[in-house]
Write a protein that binds this DNA or RNA. Sequence first.
DNA 1: CAGTATACGACCGTTTCTGTCGGCTTTACA
DNA 2: TGTAAAGCCGACAGAAACGGTCGTATACTG
Lengths: 152, 152
Amino acid sequence: MLKLTKKADYGLMALKYLAEHPEIIALSAKDVADAYGIPAQLLAKILQQLTKSGLLKSHAGMNGGYALARDARQISAFEVIHAIDGPFFITSCTKGTKGCELTPSCTIKEPLARVNETIAGVLKSISIQDLAEHEQPAKKALEASGLVALTL
Amino acid sequence: MLKLTKKADYGLMALKYLAEHPEIIALSAKDVADAYGIPAQLLAKILQQLTKSGLLKSHAGMNGGYALARDARQISAFEVIHAIDGPFFITSCTKGTKGCELTPSCTIKEPLARVNETIAGVLKSISIQDLAEHEQPAKKALEASGLVALTL
DNA sequence: CAGTATACGACCGTTTCTGTCGGCTTTACA
DNA sequence: TGTAAAGCCGACAGAAACGGTCGTATACTG
């Protein structure tokens, strides 16, 4: 619970890897998979999803592979997770629009929805670039928290 | 993904319900289950877990039931979730102490660990009391974000 | 003693997640 | 022009987690 799927993890790792090797025009799924010891075919599917979502650009054929569609600074962790795992809600009753299917008394969702937004905000503020720099992503998170707070 | 389990939801709902009825000495699992349309036996197990974790006090026998072990202000959403779903990590490689089992190169975890702490901080700052007051828990979340930011 | 409630463990059906397989298309390069 | 390296896509199987039920034992009240 409250856990990223391995797919999302793999996706983030792959994008980070791409961000760390900007000199290479295109890295194949296998390259990345080997680098991290990830099942190659699984990673391939993940990268395909990210391509469909517009986060990556792909190039088939020999010497083909994937490259970031945008600057690493312009890709947020949120986008990656969203592309792979779909929209996320912290509450179990996922139907965003309509309320909880159980009883109308399920008033707990509303406060938790705020938490959800907070988390989403934090993830949106973290870019692939931040992951690639081993630096202090905490700094970013700090700024993020401030930003998120203001928007609540 | 990044979703609370229904069990955790139920637990939060139940605690909220207890917080809203402080005048009653003890509410049985069935009482709460009926109020929300939750499977009674499932809720019972959840409440037992919360009791073992020290968030509730139980009393068997007639007119028995559960009551908050502490003031609603002193019980955080984090504690409830933790008691029910166990320790949570946003990353898939859960083993907190040792690194990722895949490769040592799994450097993505470290930045995400910060995110994890941020989320935990937000959840820790939200009390059952906050859930019970229909008010603006956003206010709390706002303060929380500020606080969390400072501790990073 | 009888009834009500918690406590606890075993179990099962469903879903979700993870990973694999096979076949197809696209491209580069010899 | 043919072959190998890559992406693309759907189906599927094994494993794990989740949600829920049942039965029984234990504790307390009156």
